[in-house]
Design a protein around this nucleic acid. Structure first.
Lengths: 193, 193
DNA sequence: AATCATTTGGATCGAACGTTCAAGAAATAC
DNA sequence: GTATTTCTTGAACGTTCGATCCAAATGATT
C-alpha cells in the first residue's frame, strides 16, 4: 500500500530499553530516546503512543528475555541445584563487577515507577512471578531427584530465593568486592544444604 | 542582628524528606517541595543551596534516624536474637501492609539516584554499613550469650540479613499477603536456628 | 508514470523544570 | 527613631519536558 518504516521495531525497542535501564524512566528524556534510536519525535510517537507506552514495551522485552534466560538455565541442567547455584554465582559476579550500575531493569522499575503506577506494577509482578515459578519447579525437581531433602518447603525456598535476588541487585549499588558478594551468596545458598 | 527565619529547619527537612521518600528524587518537583514545606522558592534556596542539597540533607535525616532506631531495638533487648526476629517481623508487617508504598528511602535512593551519583552513593553506603555493623554486633552478642552457635559466621550472617532487608523492600512493591511475607521472613530467619 | 499512504525531519507547542532576583517586611543594633 | 541586616515574597528567568503538527520525501501499488 504505502511506504514501509525504515527502522526495525525490535531494534528500536532494544535501544530504548537500554536507555531506560541505564537511567530510569524519569531521567530518560525523549530527546535522549531519539538520540539512541536515531528516530525523530514524529517517528517515535508514530510507532509508540507515548514515552510511557514505549517504556512498557521495553519493560516487556526485558522481562520476557529475562524469564526465558532463567528458564533456559534452570531447565537445561541435569542438576537443578547446580543450576540455581550457577545463577546466584552469576549474580555475585554481576553485582561486584561491571554489571552493578545497570542492576536489573525490573527491580529498578519496581522501586522507581511501580510504586505509583498500577499497570506497570502488574507487569513487573508478572515477570517476578514467572521467575519464582521457575525456581519452584527446579526445587521440586531437585527433590524428586533426591538432590534436596523433601522436608524442605519448596514454595518458601523459591520465594526466599527471588527476594534474595532483589537484595543482590541493591547490593551491587554498594560496590561490594567479589569476595563479599560471594560470601553473601554462599550464605543465601546454605538453605539448599 | 537581623530578622530570624520563621520556619524550623528540621521541620522543613522532615516534610521534604517525606515528599522525596514518597515520590523519589526526580519526580518530586520544587513546586511540590514548596507546597509541603510552605516555603517560597527563595526561602528554600536560601536555607538549602539546591534541590540536590536539600535531598541529601533529607537523606541524612532519614539515615540517622533509621540507624538510631535499629540501634535502639537491637541493644534494648536482653535477647539479641529475639530483637532481630522482631525487626524482621516488623518488615513483614510493613511490606505486606500500609508501609509497602513508601518502601525504604535509602533503598529507593540506592536504585534511583545512587547508581549515577557518587556522593549520594557514599552517603547511602554509610547508613547501610552502620546498620550492618549493628546486626553483626548483635549476632556476636548472641554468640557470647550462647543464644547462637559460635560455629556460625557472624560477618556473613550480618551481611546476609541486610541484603534480605533490601529484598523485603522490593517484595512490598509486589503487594504480598501477610502470610506470604511471613513465610519468606521465616525462611530468612532460619539461618539463626 | 501517476497515485497515495506513510515516514521523516524539523519546527513548535504549552507546561513544568530548577533557579534567581528585586522589592517588601520584620527584627535587631545603635 | 533610625539604620542595618536578613528573611520573605512573588514574579520571572532560561531551559527542558513530553507531545504535536506539518511540509517534504519516499516507496509500494495502480
Amino acid at each position: 500500500m504505502a511506504r514501509p518504516a525504515k527502522f526495525e521495531r525490535d531494534e528500536v525497542l532494544e535501544k530504548a530499553m537500554n536507555a531506560f535501564w541505564d537511567r530510569g524512566y524519569c531521567a530518560t528524556g525523549v530527546a535522549e530516546l531519539g538520540a539512541v534510536t536515531k528516530l525523530r519525535p514524529g517517528s517515535l510517537y508514530g510507532a509508540f503512543k507515548s514515552k510511557r507506552q514505549l517504556f512498557m514495551e521495553a519493560l516487556d522485552r526485558y522481562g520476557q528475555e529475562g524469564v526465558s534466560q532463567v528458564r533456559h538455565t534452570l531447565s537445561d541442567s541435569s542438576s537443578p541445584i547446580r543450576a540455581i547455584r550457577s545463577i546466584f554465582l552469576g549474580l555475585a559476579v554481576d553485582s561486584s563487577g561491571a554489571g552493578w550500575k545497570r542492576s536489573c531493569f525490573l527491580v529498578n522499575t519496581a522501586l522507581e515507577v511501580a510504586r505509583h503506577d498500577k499497570a506497570i506494577r502488574a507487569r513487573v509482578n508478572v515477570y517476578f512471578k514467572e521467575i519464582e515459578a521457575l525456581f519452584r519447579a527446579a526445587i521440586e525437581r531437585a527433590q524428586e531427584q533426591g538432590e534436596l531433602s523433601c522436608d524442605k518447603n519448596a514454595k518458601a525456598i523459591a520465594a526466599f530465593l527471588i527476594v534474595n535476588i532483589w537484595g543482590l541487585r541493591v547490593l551491587g549499588v554498594t560496590r561490594p568486592s567479589y569476595s563479599r558478594a560471594k560470601m553473601i551468596v554462599s550464605q543465601m545458598l546454605s538453605v539448599l544444604d
